[in-house]
Design a protein around this nucleic acid. Structure first.
Lengths: 207, 207
DNA sequence: GTCTATACTACGATAGAC
DNA sequence: GTCTATCGTAGTATAGAC
């Protein structure tokens, strides 16, 4: 499928070089098609860019689906169940962040966050917003005292611990003195993350 | 100073548009000088880019200096002092991440991390590496049982919580339903972060 | 639907006046 | 040191063949 090949290459190129830096010539070339296919299928460079955002949102939802599948009604969870659920969610994020498959998506998204455009709106509405809603619903069962905005902020901070594995990957590599994560590294990071998250979720309110 | 104006504009443009996306014409124009000044002062586009990295590293070290100033010998700290020190460091990071002044640096750095070049080496050697070393030395006093690589990984995860405030700022804004951080938002985030960090640092080793 | 060919614009680098 | 002028290259878009 030409469209799919174009999307795959475009996500990679836009992620690495940015919207302005990527060239439709190169994208079409790497997708082994003519430059004018972009115009035909997506209406131009910008249309291709937005289609990338939509596609990524779709993929993220698909990737996280198993994590959220058995979470039909968060308000039915008791505290311990909610904690266990939250640990599973964070571990799911962590897996996605460590996984090589998320690299192109992550590059694209991280770049969008720095200077958000219409593409970010689509990413948020399509994937990130719904995920945050689910997370804060679970967290609300653990911290019933917390106001909604604080719950959401808390989710973002916890999420930040996993995000650094992607958005700050070059630094994490330097810190661990490696060029890629070994299975042992991944296991260590997951274990640390689970422990940190558990500590955060179960801490007393007043330090 | 023409050089300084060029650096300021270049950090902004490179951060927003990437190396390939930014144009020396626009940079020179916004810095109110001729395009050929870039060749004269920095040897070309790439020289300017690397000079940006060096300048940012310098600024970060300067910005964090008060936080690390009274940390001459981390190995002399007892556990409680080390915890207090770590909380101060994280709060310092948090302040830097929330501060508008760090926005252009962050854009530049986050972009570099996605596809590291020589500029990232300079950022790491100049600022991030030394900061990590200091942090893990302090953390070692709190977790004397932890192997060095795990200490460094732990620092990165804790750091991730603050990094999300910059690298994932667009998402945090969405989560809090704002367009910029109010003083109250900043205070809430700092308080949450302090509490989370305290919980992580003082948690039992086995969850 | 997919390609080739082409029009038009903007890019980085540099030579040379001042 | 700073500017203007210009060269060669690479960008997007589009018209038209097949």
């Amino acid at each position: 499928m030409v469209q799919q090949r174009l999307l795959d290459v475009a996500i990679d190129q836009f992620g690495r070089l940015g919207f302005e830096g990527a060239s439709t010539r190169d994208i079409a070339g790497a997708a082994e098609t003519a430059m004018s296919s972009i115009t035909y299928h997506f209406g131009g460079k910008e249309g291709l860019y937005l289609a990338c955002a939509d596609f990524i949102a779709e993929q993220i939802v698909k990737r996280l689906d198993p994590v959220f599948a058995d979470l039909c009604d968060p308000s039915a969870l008791d505290r311990d169940q909610a904690i266990e659920q939250m640990l599973r969610i964070v571990d799911g994020f962590c897996g996605m962040m460590i996984d090589q498959a998320s690299a192109p998506w992550a590059r694209f998204i991280v770049r969008e966050q720095q200077a958000p455009t219409e593409a970010f709106e689509r990413l948020w509405r399509g994937a990130m917003g719904p995920v945050l809603d689910s997370c804060s619903a679970v967290l609300a069962r653990i911290r019933p005292d917390m106001p909604p905005r604080e719950l959401r902020a808390m989710c973002m901070l916890v999420f930040g611990q996993t995000m650094v594995l992607r958005a700050g990957r070059a630094s994490v590599f330097k810190a661990l003195e490696v060029d890629e994560f070994s299975a042992q590294d991944a296991a260590m990071l997951r274990a640390l993350l689970r422990r940190n998250t558990f500590a955060i979720l179960t801490a007393e309110m007043e330090p």
